[in-house]
């Protein structure tokens, strides 16, 4: 592998994300910042999911559970125990990581659609649980005490700060994705994706590798959850565990190309861009969901490898570059 090619595989994704981060800073526009936040959030979540879906080949339909669970845990500490947003995010990330570790030990034995179904079940069970769990406010959820923002120079400053933290988390997700992809651990994951039994025969300890992939794919979503609920000022069960968002993440990864670093980034960007256009367009705004559905169907039927996968197949030289 030539070194410039290896670097390009990281530089390209970094440039795309840097562009999204700089756009609102340069234009100094609050609504651009909000859009950029949404896109960065999608990129961070989709890149995390890609570690499990794209590298390891396990289809999680309930990945949003880590976002919701981590978010709840973090916000609980920030709100009820006066922790800083940093400590709260750390707690949320760790909580999601531990949840993934425990779940992974159990459900990663399931293959194919059974795994996908189990992840749906877990997400729904967790949502129903949060609905009943008094510490997390039950069905009402938790409302952040606005005085919390004072420590960060008031609400406006705090919101500005969340954007920069989100940018940081997105870069972190991207780096994790890259380093997993180009490591020995990642090669083991790819082998599992292609043929788990054959991978084990070659010495890949699949149960451990899968569990760690699951954990790695859960930590950033947990932290993003804390940050987002902190920014929003409240959390309630349907907002924390929307099954729909889980599937949107799958669509993003699929759209850009699973198993590549750049794919989920482009997919998240394109999907959020499309949604942004559809919800604001006079013609499409009422049937926005249907149009997204048609687009998804066309992708699944005609370019299942996603945009990047399609390019890689057409132009073999790109295989190294678009890692």
């Amino acid at each position: 592998m030539k070194s410039w090619q290896k670097h390009l595989g990281l530089v390209l994704p970094l440039l795309v994300v840097a562009g999204v981060v700089l756009w609102p800073i340069i234009t100094d526009n609050v609504s651009a910042r909000e859009s950029a936040f949404t896109i960065l959030k999608a990129i961070a979540l989709a890149s995390s999911l890609n570690i499990l879906l794209g590298y390891t080949g396990y289809v999680s339909f309930g990945h949003i559970v880590f976002y919701g669970f981590g978010g709840y845990v973090g916000l609980y500490f920030v709100n009820d125990h006066g922790w800083s947003i940093w400590a709260g995010m750390l707690a949320g990330g760790i909580a999601s990581g531990i949840l993934a570790f425990l779940l992974g030990k159990a459900i990663l034995r399931l293959r194919g659609a059974y795994f996908a179904l189990a992840t749906i079940g877990i997400n729904e069970a967790m949502k129903a649980f949060a609905n009943n769990f008094d510490l997390f406010g039950g069905p009402i959820g938790m409302v952040l005490n606005f005085s919390v923002y004072k420590a960060y120079g008031g609400a406006a400053e705090a919101l500005k700060m969340t954007f920069y933290i989100m940018a940081g988390l997105t870069f972190a997700a991207l780096l994790i994705s890259h380093f997993v992809r180009s490591s020995k651990f990642g090669l083991g994951l790819l082998a599992i994706r292609e043929n788990e039994d054959a991978a084990e025969v070659m010495g890949v300890i699949a149960p451990n590798a899968k569990t760690w992939a699951y954990v790695l794919s859960a930590i950033i979503p947990g932290m993003v959850g804390v940050l987002f609920f902190f920014k929003n000022g409240h959390v309630e069960p349907p907002v924390a565990f929307p099954l729909h968002s889980s599937i949107e993440l799958l669509v993003m990864v699929m759209l850009g190309g699973q198993g590549t670093v750049l794919g989920p980034i482009l997919g998240a960007f394109a999907y959020q861009g499309m949604r942004g256009y559809l919800v604001t367009s006079d013609f499409f705004k009422d049937i926005q969901l249907s149009v997204s559905g048609v687009v998804l169907l066309l992708i699944v039927l005609f370019i299942p490898a996603g945009a990047i996968g399609w390019l890689r197949h057409r132009i073999p030289v790109l295989r190294r570059v678009l890692a």
């Binding site: 090669l187 083991g188 994706r193 991978a199 070659m202 010495g203 890949v204």
Partner: peptide, 16 residues
């Protein structure tokens, strides 16, 4: 391992 290159297939053997 179909979607990996021939080289990557063999590297899996050596790595693990």
């Amino acid at each position: 391992l179909n979607e990996l290159t021939v080289l990557e297939n063999v590297m899996v053997g050596a790595c693990f």
